[in-house]
Computed example of a mutant assay.
Amino acid sequence: MQRLRDLALEVLNEYQLLSEEFGSYQKTSGLACVVGCGACCNNPQIEASVLEMLPLALHLFDVGQADNYLHQMHDSGGFACHLFKRHSLDGLKGVCTVYEWRPGICRMFGVAGYRTKTDLPTLSVCSTIKASKPNKYADALITMSTSTPPMLTHGRQRIAKIDYSMGEKLMPINQALVAALEKVLTQAAYGALDDGNVAA
């Protein structure tokens, strides 16, 4: 279990850097996420790695909620990210219930750079931000040649290199959390057997 905790700490340290990097660009460009928007959280196909979900899985284990979350997720329909609390029937408004522990993709999503097939940098901006701030979006595209945004793939690679066995493969976010919870609970059970204690 200590190995998982060490990895989670490295991931959290990288999250802090990514939040600063992507947040700074979004603030400078004026293209930050719309407050209260849940459009991307309402999409269960947003992908994350098991490694990205590891800090949250360990936190849930530490507060005695890992089993409960796992059972809820197996029983739910999976129409949105399980961690999202809707504030509207259509799911376009809401909040993240674990914002402090959100995975890397949620820290980079919304506004990020990527490279086209011809290897030119361009800007990925979610449709909600584009629609609400069209002039800021146009300005950001114009300044791309002098102010390249932080790249989504670089952020992904920085997280993945912490542990490629858990960080390289991407899957729908709910599946990634289930896999991370199962890994933590399995490690806890084996650790308990090894030292004669009962897992908390």
Rank of each mutant, 00 (worst) to 15 (best):
S88N: 06
S76A: 15
L12T: 05
A188K: 04
A131N: 06
I105Q: 11
T122K: 08
L170K: 05
I142V: 14
K136C: 07
S19P: 01
A39L: 02
Y114Q: 05
T186K: 13
E168I: 09
A189F: 15
T146L: 07
A39T: 00
L152I: 09
L54Q: 03
N43H: 12
A131I: 00
K93W: 14
P172D: 07
T148Q: 15
F79M: 02
S76R: 13
N68F: 14
E182L: 14
L56S: 00
N174L: 11
M108G: 02
M144V: 07
M171H: 07
Q16F: 11
K133S: 07
S124I: 01
A39M: 03
S165R: 13
D194F: 09
T146K: 07
I173A: 10
T128I: 13
F79A: 05
Q175N: 10
M53C: 08
L54G: 02
V34S: 08
K117G: 11
K169Q: 06
S147F: 15
F109R: 03
F22N: 00
K183V: 07
L177K: 05
G30Q: 00
T186N: 11
L120C: 02
S24T: 05
F61R: 11
A48W: 06
K133W: 10
Y164Q: 04
D90Y: 08
G104P: 02
V95W: 13
V50L: 14
N13M: 15
I142F: 15
G196F: 04
